[in-house]
Amino acid sequence: MSRTGRTYTRHFELDTRQHELLGIDLGEGAPRRALVIGIAIVALWFGGLTLLFGLPGKLTFTIYFLPPMIVSVYGAQRSRIVDRRWNLTRWAIGIRYLVLGHRPIICGGQRAAARGEWIARRDRWAPRVAFLADSPLGPLLDRWLGPEDTATPGAGAPVRLDSRPRLYGPDTVARATRRRTPIPHQKKGDQ
């Protein structure tokens, strides 16, 4: 028999909408979160290009506004892979993984992982850039990814688990707890 878990919090999510913006009627309304993120992305993209190349002309207007609009529209949609996240969140996590790697959690965070225990750059990038290996960029790519035969040092030999389950009855558990719990009215010297 298999058990199936269900998450109902998605049904309680209320999406606020903006019906009017600067006196312009938006009709049924745009989702406010998507609108705010879209405005932020457009402002950053437009500001960066303006600092680099100056104000847009008739021909460059599309380059200034179309890419951030596409990212905003598709990024604000629910992901089909992880339905609790937006596409923008998934993209950001994927980019962070490729750039910074993954820092493993060891002993529940009791010890910080050494740099050798992180996932190597080649392991993160090689599946995504394998098509470039036979191109003229191949040697440059190999140099950037690092040597292929680097093995991540392990933590040591495997630990063999040789445990035997035991079943204790309630009388045994009661005796064990009685032995360890001091009686409140006795003092240490009276025992």
Score class of each variant (00 low, 15 high):
5 G>K: 08
6 R>D: 08
10 R>G: 07
12 F>S: 06
13 E>W: 05
16 T>P: 15
20 E>Y: 02
21 L>E: 07
25 D>L: 04
32 R>Q: 10
32 R>L: 13
36 V>E: 14
38 G>W: 00
40 A>H: 06
43 A>P: 01
45 W>R: 01
55 L>P: 07
55 L>E: 12
56 P>E: 03
56 P>Y: 03
64 Y>W: 09
65 F>H: 04
66 L>S: 05
67 P>L: 03
68 P>T: 03
73 V>N: 00
75 G>L: 02
78 R>W: 10
79 S>W: 01
79 S>I: 03
83 D>Q: 09
86 W>Y: 11
87 N>M: 04
88 L>E: 01
89 T>G: 06
90 R>N: 15
91 W>R: 01
93 I>R: 14
105 I>E: 11
112 A>D: 14
114 A>Y: 07
116 G>T: 13
117 E>S: 07
118 W>H: 15
120 A>E: 12
121 R>Q: 08
122 R>N: 00
123 D>K: 12
125 W>L: 11
128 R>Y: 15
129 V>D: 01
129 V>N: 02
132 L>H: 06
143 R>F: 04
146 G>A: 04
146 G>H: 02
147 P>S: 08
148 E>Y: 03
150 T>F: 09
155 A>S: 11
157 A>L: 11
161 L>D: 05
161 L>V: 09
162 D>P: 01
163 S>P: 01
171 D>M: 10
173 V>T: 09
175 R>H: 07
175 R>A: 15
179 R>E: 12
181 T>Y: 04
182 P>Q: 11
185 H>R: 12
188 K>C: 07
191 Q>D: 12
191 Q>Y: 10
